[in-house]
Every structure is written in structure tokens, then in C-alpha cells.
Amino acid sequence: MAGTKQIQTLSVEASTEHLAEVRDFVAAHAEKIGLSQKDISEIRLAVDEAYTNIIKHAYKNSNSKKVNIEIGSDSNQLWISLMDEGKGFDPSSYSEPDLIKRIKQKKRGGMGVYLIRKLMDQVQYTRKGQTNEIRMVKNL
């Protein structure tokens, strides 16, 4: 129904074992509201990168910790929030990855945040108390 909000939530442990489950969770919602295959692919990748960053950087691979994921949509936009209680991320400390430099230094990673910004229309990081939230929005 146009104009109604649809929201679904998932709570998972912060482990790469659950990556496919998390991707499938957001893809199912996106499919249900009739998004294109291209948009669904982009949302799957954006949530993968955000969740992977929480596992690696917020919780430093301590995989008993929880990540709460919420996906919602109305007639104008689809949003996905991931919430954790680990180390916060300061987006102002982030710079665009220089691929040549990273290859020379044999560094990997650091590309997830860049990809998320490319794939989604809005990305917002907030910290309230102990909770970090990344909220990603795609305009419909």
C-alpha cells in the first residue's frame, strides 16, 4: 500500500558467518517492495560492507557481540540501519581510497565506506550513549 511504512528487524551475532543471511534479509525486503535487480544488488553490497566493518572495526572480530539491523521503506525511500555497541567510527577521519597506493603498500580494506557512499543516496553515522548507528538511505 502506498504511503504505509514497512519495517523489519534482524538481530545477529557479529560474525562473517552471518553475512549471507544479512544480505538475504535486506534483499528479501527490497524484492518485496518491487525494487529493480540493480537496486537490490547495490543494497546487498552496502549492507555487507557496513556489517563487515562493524565485525572488524567496531567489535574487532569479537563475534559474540550483537548487531541489530532494521530495514524500512515508505513510498519515497528505503532505509537500512545497523546498530552496534562497539568502537565508534568517525567519518571525518576517512579519506577516499587511493588504489595504486594501497596496492603498493599491500594494504587491503578501507574500501567499504567508499562503496557504501557510492551505492546509497545518504549515509549517516550517529552515536547515542553506547550505541553506534549507520543509517543508509536509497531514494525510490
Partner: peptide, 12 residues
Amino acid sequence: YIASAGLGVFMA
């Protein structure tokens, strides 16, 4: 499907 962690292997 590929995520950036997969691309990271080729970079390394």
C-alpha cells in the same frame, strides 16, 4: 557476488 573483502585479496 563480490564484496570489497574479495577485491582486497587481489590487491594484496
